[in-house]
Design a protein around this nucleic acid. Sequence first.
RNA 1: GGCGACGUGGCCAAGUUGGUAAGGCAAGGGUCUGCAAAACCCUGAUCACGGGUUCGAGUCCCGUCGUCGCCUCCA
Length: 461
Amino acid sequence: MLRVYNTLTRKKEAFQTIEPGIVRMYVCGPTVYDKAHVGHAMSALVFDIVRRYLEYRGYDVRFVMNFTDVDDKIIARANEKGVDPFDLAEGYIRDFEEHLADLNILPATSNPRATQTMEQIQDMVRGLIEKGYAYESNGDVYFRVTKDADYGKLSGRKLEDMQAGARIAVDEQKENPMDFALWKAAKPGEPAWDSPWGKGRPGWHIECSAMNLHELGETIDIHGGGNDLIFPHHENEIAQSECYTGKLFARYWMHNGMLQLSGEKMSKSVGNLVTIEEFLSEHEGDVMRMLVLNGNYRSPLAFTDESIAAAERGLERIKSGLRPAAPNAAGAATDALTAQAESTKTAFLEAMDDDFNTAGALGYLFELVRAINTARDAGATDEQLQPAQDTLRELTGVLGLRLEEKQGSGDADKFIDLLVEVRSEARKQKLWALSDLIRDKLAELGVTIEDNKDGTSWRWG
RNA sequence: GGCGACGUGGCCAAGUUGGUAAGGCAAGGGUCUGCAAAACCCUGAUCACGGGUUCGAGUCCCGUCGUCGCCUCCA
């Protein structure tokens, strides 16, 4: 039985979908006004892992992730650079999708954009006005928070408390300082759409509500995003959607923790960021995924040289389990290996069922790796290793790890075989200097040589 | 100030309904090896602190300290 931590109730709950076998899932994507950083990657990876596991468990997952492609920051950045805001957004969307692919993140079922949801957004705003949940004010439209008795239920806030906080600027346009914009009147030169309230554009929160309704229906199963979105973004989404439809908006709210760089949340404003582009220029996508898997998705995740190195080494270790039998393997007893493969799978599923406990699940995978390596050392053949390695492949695949061994061009292989053979001959004659020379030179070319009891094997990397 | 999360060996981190602590990285020792690499074996924590409940608590309750997030845009 899968259990999921629900931000709404602050508890792990049994996971049950609205419709059997189908999961309707929405994750808030980025506002595309700049290059995405590894914090965005973390969020995308977390929900990719959730999605993959749900699919592995047999669900048909309708996975929607939006792009906010029109907003203040995009307009400001476009003006700064003297480019068209739509072109700017388009470019960053393309970059982001490329990064997702590099990180082995499955494509969403749908990637709606604010600019392509204008009709549904306006319908919703109009409906909220009609029901008295919103009001127009000089071309802006605001949501009337005091009209929503449930306002604050996700973030655990009370309107009175928030107003006491004194951080909220009083705005003459609004009835209440906590009211938020559904529609913003356009200033001269800004991108704008015609509407019943004059030319303008949507507020940030309304697009997600409209997309959810349009893409997935009135009530969805899972709504995800970074925990920095809980308030106000998700709170406001709930308010808009539930006041508009009168139905529960989302059953399970999942939030990932923030990536920490030097002890602080990675963000533009702090300026402590590493872009996905930068990260991927130095590491393969699996490394970032490994980093995420080794932690708890709801907790802050430390992004340090040390944690990256540990993730990299851990990956190597898992890959070691997938390597072929030793040359001339004579065979070995594999009862223990078979048993370990089975118990690993059971334990893995249990861990993942417990709110996607990837760190625990990884721990069990390492146990299987050790069992495979032990069997190999004992002389197990490829045929004997294969079932356990298949299990390892299957389960790491659920986590989205690629575990690709580095490859050279196929043409080189037979020459390397030849060199290794020559070296073996040299070793027989105890020509150590020559043997080491061959090994060192091959290493420079990215080929690792390993001398075993019964022969020598080599691999790229 | 308000709301929330968290504090387990050097680092990351797991820990089902409470019964004496997975795993990874790093470190040290060992096996294997001509040497090396990889792999394998061995070594280390009483769980922030102080109370309480209990036969028994990392695991429940209270308090203290600390860290992080949100309260403005944010994955």
